[in-house]
Design a protein around this nucleic acid. Structure first.
Length: 642
RNA sequence: GCCGACGUAGCUCAGCCGGUAGAGCAACGGUUUCGUAAACCGUAGGUCGGGGGUUCGAAUCCCCCUGUCGGCUCCA
């Protein structure tokens, strides 16, 4: 007796499988069935059922079934690779978001694009052959180990050795006569056969390490994707192309946003005027929102004596991410990797009373960190960047309220940019500093602030850093991609190291709580992400050029210049294009520069004292007097319309 | 850092098996004065990322350096 999703019960014979269940319901369902969700776990279609099981049969329509498809396609890919390159040894091949990969060791050969085509062709062949994918319990682990070793499958042997006590299974690929063609050590689950595999594409090859360990074997990884239908695959490929078009590095060239220079060094960003305008506007807004919330702005030096980082512990724990020391008057100095010690210096210039707290220091603080050369990426992963950093010093009683205030600020700023977000609470990891009581106080402060606000959050158990529990916020952009967003940490380390304290109501000295938070993160990463989020079309309030004035011919120059000046007088970022190019040409350029508004001025407009408005998305939207235009622009700017 | 790919004019890219560079756009000069996404004619522009080697001869082949790009966490 098993239960179906609609609550119906179904009587089965002993030893019946999910496939038998499907068959008993309808032949069509059986044909389309690829697996089953048994007690909420994805299983093979041929898994025996037991009394009391909750069973949901999976077909291509079910979201969960994609996992089966991709995992099985990974096996087919591995089979194909070993068919094309018999000397290839297989490592692991899990599913990932939107696809899967498989790692191989192929002696004396590096995979090329042409190889991918060959492998794809072979995969199609395997799919067409309708090979059966059969689960097989390994009866004699030692014998199987010998088998793997004999075949040179050292990775599989290593894995089997580790999993020998966990009922290891093989998956066998069988041809129509039941002959085993290929096998892979795998926990499954899988599709019943390869006939369901119709729409897949191998995307790229790259390097990896066996078990992600750089001291171990170098492997070659093939990334691929698989979908139930050609249509789904095509849609996915189109989405990838879309994302590529939004690449901030690409848009930077079109829109003249930023650059990096070999002569200067990798990971160091030059902000061109256009992007500097965007940043400046963001920072202005950032300051305004901070002032409203009682923050005080500070500035701290960009280099500091190593003495400071000895106290902070950075030298001990963070040295590999820091720029090497420089010798100043025979004393080592470092570029600052974080702003916190600097803010603590300011705090400690006086004896603080509980009446002074909370103190909220904020700084757009530029830091330098050594990142391994291979991980640098446009503006998103760099070596020098400006954090919108703040450190709040408060009493334990104030903690929750401060967290609440930060969440309010986060919500305000993220909504301003049209991001949706999700919060994660990371709790104490295995290795940690501080006492259990401190962790409890800090963690519950974070959690309760979210609870009181009614914010949806997930808990990442043990995901905190060694010195702090934290709230991480993930952002979702215009095309649903995820970005690392704001973070709040309750630091249990630095207040102790620097003896950050205050005098309480009781006249005694108490350790202050120090909250570390960044909302935008780094200006580089945030603005880089924004470029992609908006696909280069910044909303009016952020746009580098807000209005482009276009006189139709030379006789309209004078009026056009007046309009231009009037806009500028009203703090609109306006430019005029009075080159002797056709109107069409200049409009095209304005469009390609993603300028929100163009105002066209010809005989008609001059006669009426008005301007013709063109919006980059809506095209011609009528004529307005300059005053009317100013009012329209101001309201759109003030509301920060997306 | 490691694996792989790539680096040709400001941009996008061509240049096969070695015979010392080419297009479009942009720029510049002129003509055109135009009504909502590319007017016409002309000119100039490159030590082919840097260094070394092979060769009579290297953008092209080999080595080193540098930068960029894709990955290196998602566990049979």
């Amino acid at each position: 007796m098993v239960t179906l999703p609609d609550g119906a019960k179904k009587e089965l014979k002993a030893g019946d499988t999910a496939a038998d269940l499907a068959k008993s319901i309808s032949e069509g369902l059986y044909r389309n069935c690829v697996g089953a969700l048994i007690n909420d776990q994805i299983k093979d279609l041929h898994t025996p059922l037991h009394t009391g099981d909750k069973v949901k049969l999976l077909t291509a329509k079910d979201e969960e079934s994609l996992e089966l498809l991709r995992h099985s396609t990974a096996h087919v890919m591995a089979e194909a690779v070993q068919s094309v390159f018999p000397e290839a040894r297989i490592a692991i091949g899990p599913t990932i978001k939107d696809g899967f990969y498989y790692d191989f060791e192929i002696p004396e050969h590096t995979l090329s694009i042409e190889d991918l085509e060959k492998i794809e062709a072979k995969m199609k062949e395997i799919a067409r052959e309708n090979q059966q994918i059969v689960r097989f319990d390994i009866p004699d682990v030692d014998k199987q180990l010998d088998e793997f070793r004999k075949d040179g499958e050292k990775f599989k042997a290593e894995l089997l050795e580790e999993h020998r006590d966990h009922n290891p299974t093989l998956y066998l690929m069988k041809d129509k006569d039941g002959k085993v063609i290929w096998n892979d050590l795998c926990a499954g689950p899988h599709l019943p056969s390869t006939k369901h595999i119709k729409a897949f594409k191998l995307l790229k090859v790259s390097g990896s390490y066996w078990r992600g360990d750089e001291n171990r074997e170098n492997l070659q990884r093939i990334y691929a994707t698989a979908w139930w239908s050609k249509q789904d695959l095509d849609d996915h490929l189109t989405r990838l192309e879309e994302a590529e078009k939004r690449d901030h590095r690409k848009l930077s060239k079109q829109l003249d946003l930023f650059s990096v220079h070999e002569e200067v060094g990798p990971g160091l960003i030059f902000w061109h005027p256009n992007l500097a305008t965007v940043r400046d506007t963001i920072e202005e807004n950032w300051r305004k929102e901070h002032r409203k919330r009682g923050y005080q702005f500070v500035y701290t030096p960009h280099v500091a004596s190593e003495d400071l980082y000895k106290i902070s512990g950075h030298l001990e724990n963070y040295a590999e991410n820091m720029y090497a020391p420089m010798d100043i008057d025979e004393h080592p100095y470092r570029c600052k990797p974080m702003n916190c010690p600097g803010h603590i210096m300011i705090y400690k210039t006086k004896l603080r009373s509980y009446r002074d707290l909370p103190l909220r220091y904020a700084e757009l603080g530029t830091v330098y960190r050594y990142e391994r050369s291979g991980v640098l990426h446009g503006m998103l992963r760099v070596r020098g960047f400006t954090q919108d950093d703040s450190h709040i010093f408060c009493t334990p009683e104030q903690l929750k309220g401060e967290i609440d205030g930060i969440i309010d600020l986060i919500d305000k700023l993220m909504t301003t940019f049209g991001y949706t977000y999700k919060c994660y609470l990371s709790t104490r990891p295995e290795k940690y500093l501080g006492t259990d009581e401190e962790w409890e106080l800090a963690t519950s402060g974070l959690e309760e602030a979210m609870k009181d606000r009614g914010i949806d959050y997930e808990i990442d158990e043990g995901g905190g850093v060694f010195y702090a529990p934290k709230i991480d916020v993930k952002l979702f952009d215009a095309i649903g991609r995820e970005w690392q967003g704001p973070t709040i940490q309750v630091d249990l380390n630095l207040p102790r190291r620097f003896d950050v304290s205050y005098i309480g109501e009781d006249g005694e000295k108490h350790r202050a709580i120090m909250i570390h938070r960044a909302v935008l993160g780094s200006m580089e990463r945030f603005v880089g992400g924004l470029i992609e989020h908006y696909a280069g079309a910044f909303p009016l309030w952020l746009a580098p050029t807000q209005v482009l004035v276009l006189p139709i011919s030379d006789r309209h120059q004078e009026f056009a210049s007046k309009v231009h000046q009037q806009l500028r007088d009203n703090e609109i970022r306006a430019h005029i294009d009075n080159r002797s190019e056709t109107v069409n040409y200049r409009i095209r350029e304005g469009q390609m520069q993603q300028i929100p508004y163009m105002v066209v001025i010809g005989d008609k407009e001059e006669a009426e004292g008005k301007v013709a408005i063109r919006h980059r998305r809506d095209g011609q939207v009528g004529t307005l007097s300059v005053d009317e235009l100013l009012a329209k622009l101001k309201s759109e700017i003030d509301s920060k319309e997306q």
